[in-house]
Design a protein around this nucleic acid. Sequence first.
RNA 1: GCGCCCGUAGCUCAGUUGGCAGAGCAGCUGACUCUUAAUCAGCGGGUCGUAGGUUCGAGCCCUACCGGGCGUACCA
Length: 494
Amino acid sequence: MRAQRLAKLDDLLNAGIKPYGHRVDDVCAAAEALAMFERSEEGAEGELRTRIAGRLMAVREMGKSIFADVRDQSGRLQVYAKKNVLGEDAFGLFKKLDIGDIISAEGSLFRTRMGEVTMKIETFDLLTKSLRPLPEKWHGLTDVEQRHRQRYLDLISNREVQELFQTRAAVVREIRNFLDERGFIEVETPMLQAIPGGAAARPFETYYAALDSAMYLRIAPELYLKRLLVGGFEKVYEINRNFRNEGLSRRHNPEFTMIEIYEAYSDCRGMMELVESLITTVAGRVLGTLEIQFEDETVINLQRPWRRVAYHDLVEERMGEDWFQVEDEERRKRGEKHGLHIPQGSSTAEATNEVFEKLIERTLIQPTFVTRLPAELVPLAKRCEDNPELVDVFELEIGGQEIAPGYSELNDPLEQRRRFEDQVQRVHGTAEEVSGRIDEDFLTAMEHGMPPAGGMGMGIDRLLMLLTGSPSIRDVILFPQMRPRQTPLDSNQK
RNA sequence: GCGCCCGUAGCUCAGUUGGCAGAGCAGCUGACUCUUAAUCAGCGGGUCGUAGGUUCGAGCCCUACCGGGCGUACCA
């Protein structure tokens, strides 16, 4: 089929027609052309001239006249090519066009007998010859692998995909608006880091030739954003990519977009207020509703205020009032009874975390702030004033998954050092060894004095999954990570 | 990494118990000057993911590998 199209390309060149055109001025969007016609009302027939440009999506040929659908980003407009209007040569050329070609067309608008607003073409140009066929017009492209590897075909074929990514852009734009309106400034911090900090994850390693040294793609921007608090910026945020060298899943892509927000003189509660307000405002502005369909039967209601509940209370509710008092062995047994595997020698916090992640998290469908987590789980957070075993943090859960963690930031440099050292000891000898290295420059910054602050992070991709009802993170990332192919995509095309 | 499922024409899909690889769309030729999943007549198009094996005979059964989906593991 490609060979046929290449032959057509030759024919065009021989006929002196350039198959790859240039700039087109005064292009009217298809949707705008339709609206213009509706506004002008009937009687104006034939008087409304305009020019459109787009891709040929369907052709209905009927002898000496042809109807075709032209699509641009705004929508679709039917065009009508008539032999006795275009003349022999131009009509002949139009007949040669393929579905998938990109053209511009100029003519007047009218309404067909079937009632569709249509452009009667007076002149047209081939702007881009397409050498490969489009996916099927009715069923579109459904093969998941191909939709991801050749997202452009998915975008052409499946209109709602384009809309989803418009929504994604709108969400990010509204997040920026919301924060900018409140005096936050957006910053950019290093993606290439000598010591990847701010989270516990295996990093991607790379090499910087000019410095002859190993570098890592960042796993979080946290330690740099805090340096900015030291520097005197009081309200900062960054929206950018993080990279984690871990498995792929429905909820995980190795590069994902994260927003982190820091506000000096605030705390955990301040951040809960902020994120509650942020998400409801953005959802309201972009979706126009705070009720979100979730997995067909359930509706998530984002109406404020959101539930706040202590981590310990949730665990006791599920595993018994005395969960934190009993012997390790008893905890292990209770876990097994619920189908959990808790290895011998697990600490109370580890066993409890297993319970939370496996049994409780997925039940938190409506927005819920889970607060007061065990200190060893969050080394960068401040301890609760009334209980040094716990840290003053929240994990926002919506739709059964973690959307955003936040906390009162630890700003005591000496304790920060101890907490880092504890962490390094815990992960010593594992794959994350490297991420356990201590960022001394960060501790130096802290010793200069970081104001008390609240901070939070939120996975943008997961927020989009929630807001768009997408079951997989790959649905909300234009080009999700795929295993490289050994054979090119078109190896079987002749 | 492990488990289950999937891979047939450019796309969407059939393919019986192991017995000549099919349809629709797209493409090509022809007819048709208001069609819209246009219609009508005809034609071309295949490394059945790859490589082995079993068999007189494999799209179908077996093994390995490649790619994908879901689950699981890793992921403060």
